[in-house]
């Protein structure tokens, strides 16, 4: 049962949030091939370890933001707002070693 630190409201229970899948998927430019489009639409890194993902505080401020979470330990290492630069993570000692390539 996760406690997610909403960057707008602070720590809240998992039940208040909605998961939006992996973040940082770039919508392909017009003229993208079927393969490029399929890669954007369906393929995922799905890492075993740290992942950047989108969550929405849907039963709170209703704001989307990004979470850096370890998919093995479920520990949350950072959160950042849409449009903010990806945080530099110095301290990821606790992260799962296997990041799935």
């Amino acid at each position: 049962m996760l406690t997610i630190p909403c960057p707008f409201c602070g720590e809240r229970d998992e039940a208040e949030f909605r998961y939006g899948g992996e973040a940082l998927q770039e919508i392909p430019q017009a003229g993208a091939s079927d393969a490029e489009w399929a890669d954007y639409l369906f393929n995922r890194d799905n890492p075993k370890g740290l992942v950047h993902e989108r969550w929405c505080h849907s039963y709170g401020c209703n704001q989307w933001f990004q979470v850096v979470r370890d998919t093995v330990t479920h520990r949350i290492h950072a959160v950042y707002r849409v449009g903010e630069a990806r945080p530099v993570l110095d301290d990821v000692d606790g992260a799962s070693a296997d990041t799935g390539g």
Partner: peptide, 18 residues
């Protein structure tokens, strides 16, 4: 469950979330 992990080791991505 780990198809994505093994696929990554072989150098390709798959449309899977674990």
């Amino acid at each position: 469950g780990h198809t994505g992990v093994l696929a990554a080791k072989a150098g390709f991505r798959v449309p899977i979330t674990s």
